[in-house]
């Protein structure tokens, strides 16, 4: 394999993992836009998506397509219940309190997952086979990687359509810009918040499900992916959708190139270092608008 083929491999690998980070980042963004908080339970949505696929496809032998949507719906429901229950009833709306509440809920979900599925990693069958595909640039990928790219692209299109062209999507964007104004024009802010958690649950589940055949899944797979997805969201500009994709891609490719060209031991350190560097230069992320402070 000559050098240009190596680079091509690094980049393709980076893009595929970057796509996952992008989806997770979008999940973080949706909740941030609706509520202003970071939902650390996003990590559990990812794990639960993967584990749910495992139960449905491997244990109950339900076809992959149906399992996909059932899992998405289930995790979405869990997200909604999380909002409707603990988050809604929290006495304080302080952002830091709610963030740590999501951390507490995340721990509860993770502990429950551990009880149900145990601690082992499990494999999930690939959506369409495992024979490597050889690309013209000299890199190889698995069919599952094509699914990752395809589904990520689809998700992007669907979300874009949702937020631009549907009433509900526009209402959500309105809530993100200014909650009071949105309420004044008749948007039910409570429903928007609920929807944001449900959507974010669905996105987390999708991320977990499409990566599971490649990486195996377990009750805590989502932690590192969630953390890096959050980093991707921040890198791209927290709350900005194009930023989520950009951040995800950059983080994924950087990690891969770092491992391949520099040092695999310091790959994560390099990625975070670059993140810090970007933040110091542009404190609101690459495409962020800046969090305005109410005086």
């Amino acid at each position: 394999m000559d050098f240009s083929q190596q680079i091509a491999q690094y980049i393709i690998t980076g893009l595929s993992i970057g796509a996952i980070y992008a989806i997770v980042a979008m999940g973080f963004n949706i909740i941030h836009n609706a509520t202003g908080i970071v939902n650390f339970a996003q990590c559990e949505f990812i794990s639960l998506g993967g584990m749910s696929m495992y139960t449905l496809v491997v244990l109950l032998k339900i076809p992959i397509l149906i399992s996909f949507f059932i899992s998405m719906a289930t995790v979405s429901l869990i997200g909604a219940l999380m909002e409707r229950g603990p988050i809604r009833y929290a006495r304080s709306k302080e952002i830091i309190i709610l963030i740590f509440l999501t951390i507490g809920l995340s721990g509860t979900l993770r502990g429950t997952a551990q009880q149900i599925w145990g601690t082992d990693n499990v494999g999930v069958p690939a959506f369409s086979g495992e024979d490597p595909i050889h690309l013209p640039v000299g890199a190889t990928i698995l069919p599952q990687h094509m699914w990752v790219f395809g589904i990520t692209f689809l998700v992007m299109l669907v979300l874009r359509h949702f937020f631009r062209n549907t009433m509900l999507g526009k209402a959500m964007r309105a809530t993100a810009v200014n909650r009071q104004a949105a309420a004044l024009v008749g948007v039910s802010v409570d429903h928007m918040v609920l929807l944001s958690f449900a959507l974010s649950g669905a996105l987390g589940a999708v991320a977990g499900m499409i990566i599971a055949p490649i990486s195996t899944t377990s009750y805590d797979t989502g932690i590192m992916l969630g953390l890096k997805g959050f980093a991707a969201a921040i890198l791209g500009g927290y709350g900005n959708f194009a930023g989520a994709i950009l951040g995800g891609v950059i983080l994924g490719v950087l990690e891969s190139l770092g491992a391949g060209l520099l040092s695999s031991q310091y790959k994560d350190a390099t990625a975070f270092l670059v993140l810090l560097f970007v933040l110091f230069l542009k404190p609101t992320g690459i495409m962020g608008y800046g969090e305005s402070e109410r005086v």
Partner: peptide, 8 residues
Amino acid sequence: VDMTAQLT
């Protein structure tokens, strides 16, 4: 989740 870079 992916070691293709290192293996490459």
